[in-house]
Design a protein around this nucleic acid. Sequence first.
DNA 1: GCGATCAGAT
DNA 2: CACATCTGATCGC
Length: 729
Amino acid sequence: MSTFPGRMLEFPSISIDCFDRENLAAKAYFLSHCHKDHMRGLRAPSLKRRLECSLKVHLYCSPVTKELLLTNPKYSFWEKRIVTIEVNTPTQISLVDEASGEKEDLVVTLLPAGHCPGSVMFLFQGNNGNVLYTGDFRLAKGEAARMELLHSGDRVKDIQSVYLDTTFCDPRFYQIPSREECLIGILELVRSWISLSPYHVVWLNCKAAYGYEYLFTNLSEEFGVKVHVNKLDMFKNMPEILYHVTTNRNSQIHACRQPRGEEFLRGNRLPCGMVSLNGTPLRVISIKPSTMWFGERTRRTKVIVRTGESSYRACFSFHSSYSEIKDFLRYLHPVNAYPNVIPVGRTVGHVEKILKPLCRSHSGSVEPMYKPLGALKRSRGMHLNDTDENIVEELFEDYPLTLRHKLPAQQELKSEPLQTEITPEMDREMCGKDKDAYEASTWGFSLPVNCVDCEESNDEEEESEQTVTNEDCHILFSEKIDSHENNMRKNAMISDEHESTINLPTWDVFFKRDAVLDDTVEKEDCSIPSKEEIGSQSPNLFSDSDGESTHISSQTSSQSTHISEHGSQGWDSQADTLLISSQERKAAECGNVNKADGRLIFSPAHLFPVENQDDGRSWAALQVDELHSKEDNHLYTSAEWKTLQSGLTSQENGQRKLGCGECITNTNAQNTDQEKLKAFAKADSQGSSDFEIPRTPGAESPRQDKLQNLYEKLATGETVLMDRKLDTL
DNA sequence: GCGATCAGAT
DNA sequence: CACATCTGATCGC
C-alpha cells in the first residue's frame, strides 16, 4: 500500500497519487492508476472546493484511468478537469501560479507500468532535472531497457530521482513467477476442471480491484467462456475487455463477488447464487490469486497450490519482485531513489539500504571512479545464473560510468545469438543438455523456498534436486475440446504481432500467452522440443490416458497429479500438492507458447521458429471487429485498444489540443528515431516467425543463409561458433 | 450526517 | 501471505 505523501522534492508544486493535506495547494495533480490507496483525498469536499476556485488546476492521467475513475459518479466532478495524456507521448504542461501568474513548464511522459489497466509511471522533465515516479508497477527484468522514452539516444536518461514502488523490496520476495508463468498455470488448472463437464465451474476469488482483467480476457479467449462479473460498466468503452466479461451467470468461469459474511461457497454455490445448471448441481472450485514468492536460490516454484478440497491459490502479483525492482533501479541508476512503500515489518532505513547501492548518490562517494570492467554487467538478457550475476553485481554495479545501452522493445535473450556476442553462457543456453550438467554443478546444494505457502510442503528439497528433462517441459492437456474451443485455438494461432506499437513495451506483453516471456530468473534448460518434435517423438505426452482427467504436471509418478471428478482424489495426503512445476515454468521461459491441435506447445524460441500463420489481423482484433459490428458506442478502435491497458498509443500527433483550453505540445525529439525503429522492426518481422524483435539500431541484419545454417546446427546440437562483432558492442 | 482513522476481515 | 478493499466502531467537526 502506497504511503507516498504526494509530493516530490524536485517538483514540490505538483501532487501525485495523494490529494489531501498539503497537496490541496498543488498546481497540478497526477493519478498513476485507479486504486484507492493512490486516490486518497481525491473526492474530498476540500479538494472539490479547491477545484471550484482554481480553474487552472487539472488532473493528469492516462485515458484508461480517466475512464475507470469517471465510472464512479463520486468522481464525476473531476470530469471537466481531467487531462488525459497518451502513454509514451512526451507532453509539455504549464504549471501556473494563480496568484502571481508565473508559469513553469514541465514535460511529462507516461510510461506503461504493468500494474493494472491504465496504470502508468510518470517521467517528469523540468528545471530540477528528470524524475521518475513509478506509481505501482510490475515490470519484468529488462523492461526498463526496452522503454524508448527512458533513453536519450542509446543511453538511459540522466535521472535525478526515482520514487519507487517498493512493495516487494525485500530479499524475501527475491523472485515471483512471471505473469506468463502464472497465467499458464491458471489456464491449465481451469482447463482441467471445466473440461470435465458443463457443470464443472471455477470461481476466481479476486479482490475488488482492477488488475485481474488480463486474466479474464485470457481465460475467455482460451476457452471461449466469458467470465461472469458483478459489474462491467467500467469497461463500456474498452471493447477488448468488455467482450470477455459478462453479467450472465450462466458461465463456467466466475469472478463475481458478494458482500462478505455469506456462506456462499459452501456446497456448490457461487457468490452470484448459481447452484445448478438445468437442475444438475454445479461443481465449483475456487482459485484465489495470491502473491507467491521464492528465494534467490530457489529453483522449484509452485504456481498453483491446493489449499483445500476444492480450493486453490494461484500465483499472481501486481508488483515487481525484489530482483525485478533491483534490475529496474540498477538500470536507471538515478542519483536518488525513494521508496513509496515500506514492506511490512521493515523500516525506511532497511529499504533505503537496498536502494542506495543502486544509486549514484551512493556509488559516487564510495566507489573509485575507474572500474575498467564495469561495463561487463551490461550483457543484458544473457544473465549468468543468479549466483554469478550477484558476484558481478557486487563487483560492478556501482560503476558510475556504466554503459546502459537502450534495448529495442522485446529484444531479449532469443535475439542475441544472432547479433553481437556469444558467451559461454549463451552456448549453454543453446545446448540444453549441456546446460543441465552445468546446472548440476552450479546448484550442488538444496535451495530453500521463502514462501509461506510453500513451507507447508515437505518435499521441497527433494523437488529442488530434480533436473530438467524433455518430458518435464510439457504440460499435458485434455483432448476433449468442443468445436468452439477449437475455433478459439485456430484463431489464437493468428499472431497479433504486426502492430504499429511493435517497438514499444505494450500491454500485450502482459496480456497474451504467447507474449515474449521475461527473463525474471536465471536462464535454464531450453532443450524443449519443437512442435514437430513433440508430434513425432513424444506422442504419449499428449494422450489423455484415462480420458476423464487432465494431467497438469507429470514430473514423477509420485508427484504426478490430476484433477478428477472426485475432487480430493489423490490429494488428501498433501495439502499443497504441486501442480505446475518449475520445469513447466522454465519451459515457459525458454520458448513461446503456441497453440495447435488443442494443445499448448512450447516451442523453443532459440532454435525452432514456428510457422507463422498470421494473416495480419490479431485474434483480439477479430473479436473486437465482431463486437464493433454489433455495437457502435465504442470510443476506441481495436488497434487503439491494445494501448488501452497501458495507455500506449501511436505517436503520430505532433501537436495536440487537449480539452482544457490549453495547447499542449508534444516534444517529439525521439519520434524520428522511433519511426525508423518501427520501420526497421516491421521490415525485419516480415521474415521472422512467431516473435518480432527489432534490431539494435545500427546492427547488421544477419543473412538468411547464415541464419538457416545456424538453425540447422542448433537443431542438431552442433557446437556453434560465431564471429564476435566487437564493433557493435 | 459526513469524513477521517483504525482494526479486522476477505 | 505483506496484492486492495470494504465494513464497522469511534471520534470530531
